[in-house]
């Protein structure tokens, strides 16, 4: 099963990335190399095998619903690329306009 350049572009879009046209062929080849290699898993019969998502013997881990000491507003905003009125400032959600 080969992944096409169009599919790689579509996946990039889903992942909110852009692959420049000049890098596309390389990405497509590497994508197919890796997925081709992963294809070896198809040799194994896993019909009756349960999947493992994580290895700990725990399910949900709950704690008391008690308030801790969160970051202050100033600390939480200290790395913000842009801020205004104590909040994060971002580009417009709707088309047009800029920051």
């Amino acid at each position: 099963m080969k992944v096409s350049a169009q599919e790689v572009q579509y996946i990039a879009k889903l992942a909110r990335l852009e692959i420049p046209e000049e890098d596309l062929a390389l990405f497509v080849r590497q994508f197919n190399d890796i997925l081709g290699y992963a294809g070896m898993l198809g040799k194994l019969d896993t019909e009756k095998v349960e999947p493992t998502a994580q290895v700990l013997p725990y399910g949900n881990v709950m704690r008391e619903d008690a308030a801790g000491t969160p970051l202050t507003q100033e600390e939480a905003l200290s790395n913000a690329p842009a801020q205004k009125d104590g909040g994060y400032l971002v580009a417009r959600v709707m088309e047009g306009g800029g920051v």
């Binding site: 990335l17 790395n79 913000a80 690329p81 971002v90 580009a91 920051v99």
Partner: peptide, 24 residues
């Protein structure tokens, strides 16, 4: 995504473009 911390691509017109350019 360039919202709360880290690099943010400059000069973007909307949120989607900001996210894509920042990550790219």
């Amino acid at each position: 995504d360039g919202v709360k911390y880290g690099y943010r691509a400059p000069g973007c017109r909307n949120l989607i473009e900001m996210t894509v350019k920042t990550r790219t």
